[in-house]
Nucleic acid binder design. Structure first.
Length: 495
RNA sequence: GCCGGUAUCGUCUAGGGGUCAGGACGGGUGGUUCUCAGCCAUCAAACCGGGGUUCGAAUCCCCGUACCGGUACCA
């Protein structure tokens, strides 16, 4: 039975890199009918908070990565918060000392820091000098009597140590580079190495899938597995996600939190598809779009790329657009609702008697939308009573020669058109253009600005019909009024 | 500095001793058209460098270089 875990430390929101690591773990578990454990690594109390924990859980829920054991759901190895497991780490550390795998170190962090800095100045690679390993029994007794603070260090053997990584293959380290590292701080808190290994062992984790930044920690943890007499899991170190400048992805590259992408109108299914293909590929075939079950069926650690990958918002946008288009009308309207609501443009009738109309509008706008939030801007003239005129558009098409008369004529023609549909409105406008001796485009452009306030929109006649005769006529009047009221200083809008 | 990892179009990648080095995003051009988007067609764009091994290397080996990560009583 495969057991994997995602073990975030709640010092921030769920980062896209963490999200992808979680996704890979989840895919592996689902692929093999295993268990996906969520464990919170909050041993660093200063930097952790319960708000952050919930933020991370929200991110995972949004992506649809459900965990089988962990916060809220519990499980046979509860608790799943490391801050509630501190006694186990302490006990384990004591056990390692008792068995001779570790020893107490009374050196103060400051003293060590001083030594290290001195060593670095002379260009020598620093390792803890084992001062306390050499302590005589009497010295130790004296320090104990004085209640001197002590940390626990592992006694690192001088042998080559390596492992077979699922993505990188064999990775080996020379023991001479591994120092006697601290596993239990003098305040009784474990360091990362101790807590991960303890928990991974106790929770029966079979595969450790984590970021590449952990490869150099692995030999130390291998030592711990060995000292504990525990079976070593299979490791898979997945490459990091970078910004467009190839630097570690950070806020200055844009959003890094998955929840931020949710807010920006991205769909979780698009994010999952995008993230899955960032550093992983199913191999054969040119397919880019994968459903969740496709991904589960094809996922394999061995197909994860070895190199870092650049996060491309452009490609994410494309995925999002693809998934947006696949949404059924009802589903699309349900998902667009929050964006419209926060812009103050949502009406409950859109889900009731005006449902069909609303669906038709979304359908018309859809090819122009990449994100859910795009519908706010794209559909402003459908959803708001007050039209927002783009000054450039007004200058260009409304203040044009004869525009006023053209619009008035079109208005009259549309007034008693029956029926009022795409075919009839188009025919009427084109006929009007011909009788007035102008290009149909001239009338269409002016009319578009009058109806939408802008130069770009879906097909003008589709827009007109969905707006409805009443609003069309009214907006033409408003446009004419606008021309008359502000005709004196035509285009005097500096800056 | 030391240790570890990685190197195929701008980006994500497929491939892997003999291929026209394939796809996708993005970009260019043309078409459709009332604008925008979309759609259709089409183009440009890559095997980090140097040595080997081999009939043949992008692919295997070595050496460089670049980039990324680590080098804590952070995780």
């Amino acid at each position: 039975m495969i057991r994997v875990r995602f073990a975030p430390s709640p010092t921030g929101y769920l980062h896209v890199g963490g999200a992808r690591t979680a996704l890979f773990n989840w895919l592996l578990a689902r692929r093999h009918g295993g268990v996906f454990v969520l464990r919170i690594e909050d041993t660093d109390a200063d930097r952790s908070s319960t708000d952050m924990v919930e933020g991370i859980l929200d991110g995972l829920r949004w992506l649809g990565l459900d965990w089988d054991e962990g916060p809220h759901v519990g499980g046979p190895y509860a608790p799943y918060f490391q801050s509630q497991r501190l006694d186990r780490y302490r006990t384990t550390a004591e056990r390692l000392v008792a068995e001779g795998h570790a020893y107490y170190c009374y050196c103060s962090p400051d003293a060590i820091k001083t030594k290290r800095e001195a060593a670095e100045r002379t260009g020598v690679a620093w390792r803890y000098d084992r001062t306390c390993l050499a302590l005589a029994a009497a010295d130790i007794a004296a320090k104990e009597r004085a209640h001197q603070a002590r940390a626990v260090r592992v006694r690192a053997p001088e042998r080559r140590i390596g492992f077979d990584d699922a993505v990188h293959g064999r990775i080996e380290f020379d023991g001479s580079h591994i120092e006697d590292f601290v596993i239990l701080r003098s305040d009784g808190h474990p360091t990362y190495h101790l807590s991960v290994v303890c928990d991974d062992v106790e929770m029966g984790i079979t595969h450790v899938v984590r970021g590449d930044d952990h490869v150099s920690n692995t030999p130390k943890q291998l030592l711990l597995y060995d000292a504990l007499g525990a079976p070593v899991p299979r490791f898979a170190h997945v490459p990091l996600i970078m910004g467009p400048d190839k630097k570690r992805l950070s806020k200055r590259h844009g959003a890094t939190s998955v929840i931020e992408y949710a807010r920006q109108g991205y769909l979780p299914e698009a994010m999952v598809n995008f993230l899955a293909l960032l550093g992983w590929s199913p191999g054969s075939g040119d397919q880019e779009l994968f459903t969740r079950s496709d991904l589960i069926a094809r996922f394999a650690l061995e197909r994860i790329s070895g190199g870092n990958a650049v996060f491309s918002v452009e490609k994410l946008d494309w995925f999002n657009q693809q998934y947006l288009w696949m949404l059924a009308p009802d589903e699309l309207s349900r998902r667009v609702q929050p964006s419209l609501a926060s812009a103050g443009l949502w009406r409950s009738s859109y889900a009731a008697d005006r449902r069909d109309w609303f669906h038709a509008v979304l359908q018309l706008l859809k090819p122009r939308a990449k994100k859910l939030t795009d519908f706010v801007q794209l559909g402003q003239y459908f959803f708001a009573d007050e039209l927002v005129y783009d000054p450039t558009a007004v200058d260009q098409h409304l203040r044009a020669e004869g525009a006023r008369d053209h619009l008035l004529a079109v208005q009259a023609a549309l007034d008693d058109l029956d029926p009022f549909d795409v075919r009839t409105t188009e025919a009427a406008v084109r006929a009007m253009a011909e009788s007035r001796g102008v290009n149909a485009a001239t009338l269409i452009h002016a009319l578009r600005v009058a109806l939408t306030g802008r130069t770009a929109s879906p097909g003008l006649f589709e827009v007109a019909v969905l707006l409805g005769r009443h609003r069309v006529l009214a907006r033409i009047s408003s446009a004419v009024a606008l021309m008359e009221s502000s005709s004196a200083p035509p285009q005097s809008h500096p800056s």
